[in-house]
Design a protein around this nucleic acid. Structure first.
Length: 269
DNA sequence: CCAATTGTTATTTA
DNA sequence: ATAAATAACAATTG
């Protein structure tokens, strides 16, 4: 479920725990979510440690745990972070529970496509240093975008927008939202865009990321808020959904291996 | 029973 | 060899 802004929402949930010590750790060591992780070292490193800061890059989160180490989390398709009361009993799909004096921090993920990782020591993990620029940052230029599209010339735009190495945080609904706003057909070959199309794509990528972060991160009764009215988001899963701009029927089909919703009347370039 | 799911990666195909 | 397409992962819901 979680894309850029939903991940940011989850990160901020755990910020309630910063500067507090972890008194104990509960986990299911054999859960697939811990594939490749030394769970004994993770439990040892986190017990008694203090969460000192939290970070996000795309859909990846990183929590600094004092001098002890770094906890990396990815929510996959169905992961979530929650804050529960200190006596909260671990539930079936909760894979990692960090207990503090005042609360319990829970990482749950029914489908276990998410990942947990632990890097001991004071230096952040190598993968964190190599993260690509966020779409909102100045380093995400139209020139970089155009060069990337040229290297994926024959792939449909929809598939290319899901590539995290260039578009960190973009997922299925955000990709559809961006292409809809840019008026670009999701099956259009990435290498066929001229400078004008490319500029439009660049502009709408930034618009959708900014708008999603501004709206979704707001807390509404313990859950994230919806994107603004008028966004494709509100129509894309509705049977008989209509394009918010043209009022014409929307179409759903598999493009780039994912269910894609688009407006034939609007996305004709 | 069948198909679907807002993610990523390994494997297969072209 | 490389890029693109597909299967796989796992659980749940309709």
């Amino acid at each position: 479920m979680p894309e850029l802004a939903e991940v940011e929402f989850m990160r901020r949930r755990w910020d309630a725990a910063l500067e507090d010590a972890v008194t104990s750790v509960e986990l299911h060591p054999r859960a697939r979510i811990f594939r490749g992780v030394d769970t004994a070292a993770l439990a040892r490193g986190l017990t008694g440690a203090t969460l000192t800061s939290s970070h996000r890059s795309g859909k990846q989160m990183l929590f600094a745990c004092g001098d002890s180490g770094w906890l990396g989390l990815h929510l996959g398709m169905t992961g979530e972070l929650r804050v529960e009361a200190s006596a909260y009993p671990i539930d079936r799909h909760d894979h990692l529970v960090l207990r503090q004096r005042a609360r319990a921090l829970v990482f749950a993920d029914p489908r276990m496509f998410g990942t947990v990782e632990w890097t001991p020591g004071t230096q952040p993990p190598a993968w964190w240093r190599d993260r690509p620029p966020e779409i909102m940052e100045p380093a995400f230029t139209a020139e970089r975008l155009q060069a990337f599209l040229a290297r994926r010339a024959k792939s449909p735009l929809k598939a290319v927008l899901l590539m995290q190495e260039m578009f960190p945080g973009i997922g299925n609904w955000m990709a559809d939202e961006v292409l809809w706003r840019a008026g670009l057909h999701p099956a259009r070959a990435a290498g066929s865009l001229d400078a004008v199309d490319c500029a439009a794509l660049h502009r709408e990528l930034r618009f959708v990321c900014r708008g999603a972060l501004r709206s979704i991160v707001r807390d509404v009764d313990g859950h994230w808020a919806d994107p603004p009215r008028g966004w494709l988001f509100h129509e894309r899963w509705v049977d008989g959904g209509r394009c918010p701009r043209t009022g014409s029927p929307l179409v759903r089909e598999t493009i780039g291996g994912r269910t894609t919703c688009w407006s034939p009347a609007l996305q004709n370039r």
